[in-house]
Structure formats: C-alpha cells, structure tokens
Amino acid sequence: MGISLGRGGATTFPQDLVNSDAILIMGSNMAEAHPVAFANVVKAKELGAQVMHVDPHYSRTSALANLYVPTRAGSDIVFLGAIIRHVLETSGYFHDYVVQYTNAATLVREDFKDTEELDGLFSGYDPASETYTDQKSWDYQRDKNGQPLSDPTLQHPQCVFQIMRRHFARYTPEMVENVCGVPREVWLQVAQTLVENSGRERTSAICYAVGWTQQSKGVQIIRAAAILQLLLGNIGRPGGGIMALRGHASIQGSTDVPTLYDL
C-alpha cells in the first residue's frame, strides 16, 4: 500500500467499519484472530452491510458472514484480478473519483512495455542483475514545463487506465474457476456486491491479515486490493478503505490502537 497510497499501513481504523455498506474479508480469520475489531463488522452487518469471507478455511468469520466463498490457497491475486477486470469492463468504477483522485488519466511514456509484450516482464528488466535497473520508461509523458500529460476521457492507449485494462484482461471468470476453484456465479456475486455498494453514495471496505502478507506474492495481492479500492472510490471515505489486520499491537502505528476497546 505504500506504493499505491503513500503509506504502508491501514487506510482506516476498525470502528469505521460500522459505516461500510459491504465488507470483504480475505486472508484473515478476523472473528477469532481480531475479535474486538470484528465486533465492528458484526455491527455493520446488523446495520445492513453485506459481509463476505473468501478463504480456504471455514471458520467463525465464515459462519458470521452473509456469504462464504471457499477458494484454493494462494489464488487470491487471481480472484481480485478478475474483480478488477470486471469493474473495468463493465464500467463499474467511480468515474469522477478515478479521474480526479487517481493517476488513471495520466499518460505513460510510449516506450513502456507491459508483461503481455515482453513475455511476463516489464520494460527495463536487466537479466544480469535480475532487477529492473532502468525504470525510465515507467515515467509519465510530460509537457515542456515537466508536468505530466493526461487524458481525462481515459481513452488514450498510453493512459494508466488503458494500460491497466490491458494488463488485467487475462483474469477472466474462466481463470477464476480453473485457478481458484470458485464457480463463476459465486465469484460474480462478490464482484457485483462490491460494485453495487461502492460509488457516490456507498462505500465498501476490504480487511486482510497475514493470510495475504505471508505469501510470496503478498505485495502484489495487497497492490491489487489497493487498485480495486481506488477504482471503486473507496479510499479516503467513511466506510471504505483497506483494514490491514496485524499480528500484534503497534506493528503499523496508531491504526492498531483502536482495537483496544477500553482506551
């Protein structure tokens, strides 16, 4: 989340979950591992929020959710990637928010190449060091004053929005079925619930814990969650955001403190 939002900790605090219209919990058995924080999820559900738990293991969190979706371990990024694709292809994103508060309209340099063009690698990769040593192509196109160029219509092929659309095109419902083991209609129910409970009048939250962070691709999973929440307009608004549930207090600063109910 540090790359996406400028800070690596949670974007919200547990008590704000009561303002959510939908809550997606992945990589966490929140009811048992974070029971005090989970009380806010229970309250949100009582107020009408849709609570969804996507996890390989059926737990008390699953039992208390409106919808439990069993999935294969390690397939989270495919599940989220397909939701991102669905949001992009069905215009389920919050257009005004995306244009005004994200870099979706900004134009990336013409020499940037995505993974589809370079057999799984981005431009700038150095095989000798096995790192991206040359990241100049990742920069924005700029005017004579050095200011980034943008296309508010989101139609330019080099704008971040269109690059992202091409990148996530691979995450189809068929891939979800094959990789995650989740039927298309069940996955679609999660996707539609998030879309229907996001936008100008509604907000949805995502909660995760070490079930994401301890995976070898944990950074990419959390990055996908940040992309999804930005597309839906759920960052920086009551009831929205990403609640990172940590293993012990103070690991990410003051966002852990509100889990102590009697402060």
Rank of each mutant, 00 (worst) to 15 (best):
residue 185 E to V: 08
residue 211 G to V: 06
residue 153 T to D: 07
residue 32 E to S: 14
residue 219 V to Y: 08
residue 220 Q to S: 13
residue 185 E to F: 05
residue 206 I to Y: 04
residue 243 M to Q: 12
residue 220 Q to E: 13
residue 101 Y to D: 08
residue 228 L to F: 04
residue 74 G to H: 10
residue 9 G to V: 07
residue 149 L to V: 04
residue 71 T to Q: 15
residue 227 I to W: 04
residue 252 Q to F: 06
residue 87 V to G: 03
residue 54 V to Y: 00
residue 251 I to Q: 14
residue 61 T to H: 07
residue 125 Y to L: 13
residue 119 D to G: 10
residue 141 Q to T: 08
residue 185 E to N: 12
residue 136 K to N: 11
residue 160 V to G: 03
residue 183 P to L: 05
residue 35 P to Y: 03
residue 111 D to T: 11
residue 203 T to E: 01
residue 45 K to D: 08
residue 130 E to T: 12
residue 40 N to W: 11
residue 46 E to S: 11
residue 53 H to V: 11
residue 213 T to S: 14
residue 110 E to R: 14
residue 78 V to G: 02
residue 217 K to C: 11
residue 144 K to T: 04
residue 229 Q to D: 05
residue 64 L to P: 00
residue 102 T to I: 04
residue 103 N to V: 05
residue 220 Q to L: 13
residue 41 V to T: 09
residue 118 L to Y: 13
residue 194 L to M: 14
residue 231 L to V: 04
residue 190 V to C: 10
residue 47 L to F: 08
residue 73 A to T: 15
residue 37 A to I: 02
residue 187 W to R: 12
residue 102 T to V: 05
residue 29 N to Q: 11
residue 77 I to M: 11
residue 133 T to Y: 03
residue 182 V to Y: 01
residue 201 E to F: 08
residue 32 E to H: 12
residue 235 I to H: 01
residue 258 P to N: 03
residue 164 M to P: 01
residue 63 A to D: 12
residue 98 V to F: 00
residue 250 S to Q: 12
residue 167 H to I: 05
residue 193 T to D: 01
residue 124 G to I: 09
residue 160 V to L: 14
residue 155 Q to F: 00
residue 256 D to V: 06
residue 100 Q to D: 13
residue 105 A to Q: 13
residue 257 V to E: 10
residue 66 N to E: 12
residue 36 V to M: 08
residue 204 S to I: 03
residue 166 R to I: 02
residue 232 L to V: 05
residue 165 R to M: 06
residue 105 A to S: 15
residue 245 L to T: 00
residue 251 I to D: 12
residue 113 K to L: 13
residue 114 D to K: 07
residue 122 F to I: 03
residue 176 V to Q: 02
residue 85 R to C: 03
residue 108 V to A: 08
residue 195 V to A: 00
residue 131 T to Y: 13
residue 90 T to E: 02
residue 13 F to Y: 10
residue 24 L to G: 05
residue 63 A to M: 10
residue 211 G to K: 06
residue 235 I to F: 01
residue 208 Y to R: 09
residue 51 V to E: 06
residue 4 S to N: 13
